[in-house]
Simulated assay, not measured.
Amino acid sequence: MSQDDEFSESPPSTYPLDTDPSNFDYQSSQNEQDSNSSFWGRLVPMSTNLRCSVIDLERETYLFGRQVTCDFVFSNSNTSKENIKFVSKQHFKICYHCNTTVSFVSIEDLSSNGTFVNGVKVGRGKTNPLKNNDVISLALPHVQVFVYIDLKVEDDTKYPPEIKRRYTITKELGRGACGRVKLVFEKATCKMLAMKIIQKSKNSSGGISDPKKIKSEVKILKSLNHPFVITIEDFVDTPDECYIILTLAEGGDLMKHIQNKQCLSEKEAKKIFYQIALAVEYLHSCGIAHRDLKPQNILLTGQGRNSIIKVTDFGLSKTAGSSENGLLCSESWSNCGTGNSLMKTVCGSPLYVAPEVLTAALHSSECSGYTKKVDIWSMGVILYLWG
């Protein structure tokens, strides 16, 4: 026996299993029953290896092991002799993480003998996300003890195979006109990311849901590399939807931050605005006009003083000099011999859009239009909100 009370003896290589974990699919009737309760999860015991009642979860942390101080104690009365000797005093911990923007469930392996989720070892001291219908095993994948049921999450069977293969899909973070944003975990690294799901619109040429516009946004994002600009991690394209995997900003958007604080201090306002200015300077140096700068499209990486901003949502962005057959084929451009490409499309959010954007459509001359400087006007409106 080692110092941390782990047993060096190896558990049996096989163990009889009379229950197929794939049959554990607790559907909407149970979830609807608990959707309005304080319970966020449920552990259903695998009768083959564990004799106990269903465990409903409502606290933030639950500890499992042989130690009598654990929230659930594996003992001779509920665990077979073959398996109890491989259970540590503190074997694993399940936690519910929830803040203003993100909520998810994790399992931490505290045992050197191993905790497994769906047959894959978590690893001592490591943490994995826990999602609906995951099977928890001790010491070996065959020694299955619980099926975890998420009482708050929707089923993910509708997602394409390449998404489900790479990512664990959990809670919805937000929803807007252009689609939904989900919290996901990269299975290889357990890294938290945001997945933007855009429903393609085949009848909306030039709109945000236009497949050409979506590919344009992805192309722009892939070309960017700046600490204050959102980073694209992955992209999956299907006939009906696009899935854009982005860096997760856990602090929510700037508009909610302003509303929560009502008025930002001069010190905080200077810090945030300086970061926005650096981000816009970088975009303009790359020949990119964002064209939809607003607090909702500026995210915060956290709520602490070390939080930084991330400019996001490049669905209306434009790369200077792109032609009718180039990046954004629906955009209208003219040069006017000034060295500055002029944009003519009226777009953006009404409260933050520059006057020249609104007047561009009223003039048909070759020299009418606007430049990337319209982003500066939007920045001024954002700063005005803090007063």
Rank of each mutant, 00 (worst) to 15 (best):
C329T: 10
S330I: 10
E331S: 10
E331M: 05
S332M: 14
S332D: 09
S332H: 13
W333C: 08
W333I: 14
W333G: 01
W333D: 00
W333L: 10
S334R: 12
N335Q: 13
N335H: 13
C336G: 08
C336V: 06
C336P: 04
C336Q: 11
G337D: 03
G337K: 01
T338D: 14
T338F: 11
T338K: 15
G339F: 11
G339N: 14
G339Y: 09
G339V: 12
N340T: 15
N340K: 15
N340D: 15
S341I: 15
S341C: 15
L342W: 15
L342G: 02
L342D: 05
L342E: 06
L342N: 06
M343L: 15
M343T: 08
K344N: 02
K344P: 00
K344Y: 06
K344M: 04
T345I: 09
T345K: 12
T345L: 11
T345R: 07
T345Y: 03
T345E: 03
V346H: 07
V346F: 06
V346G: 01
C347W: 11
C347N: 04
C347K: 09
C347V: 11
C347G: 01
G348C: 05
G348R: 03
G348Q: 08
S349T: 15
S349P: 00
S349M: 04
S349G: 02
P350C: 00
P350N: 05
P350V: 00
L351G: 04
L351C: 09
Y352M: 00
Y352F: 14
V353I: 15
V353S: 01
V353F: 02
V353Y: 03
V353Q: 03
A354P: 08
A354L: 09
A354E: 11
A354H: 14
A354I: 10
A354F: 14
P355Q: 09
P355N: 12
P355Y: 07
P355I: 07
E356F: 13
E356C: 06
E356P: 09
E356I: 06
E356Y: 15
V357A: 02
V357M: 07
L358F: 08
L358T: 01
L358S: 03
T359H: 06
T359Y: 07
T359C: 12
A360N: 02
A360I: 04
A360L: 08
A360V: 06
A360D: 01
A361F: 06
A361I: 07
A361D: 05
A361S: 13
A361G: 07
A361P: 01
L362E: 02
L362H: 02
L362A: 05
H363E: 09
H363S: 09
H363D: 10
H363F: 11
S364T: 14
S364I: 09
S364C: 07
S364G: 03
S364A: 11
S365N: 13
S365H: 02
S365F: 04
S365Y: 01
S365W: 02
S365I: 04
E366N: 05
E366K: 10
E366T: 04
E366L: 08
E366R: 05
E366F: 02
E366H: 01
C367P: 01
C367W: 10
C367M: 10
C367Q: 13
C367S: 15
C367F: 06
S368L: 10
S368V: 03
G369A: 13
G369K: 14
G369D: 05
Y370Q: 01
Y370F: 14
Y370R: 03
Y370L: 00
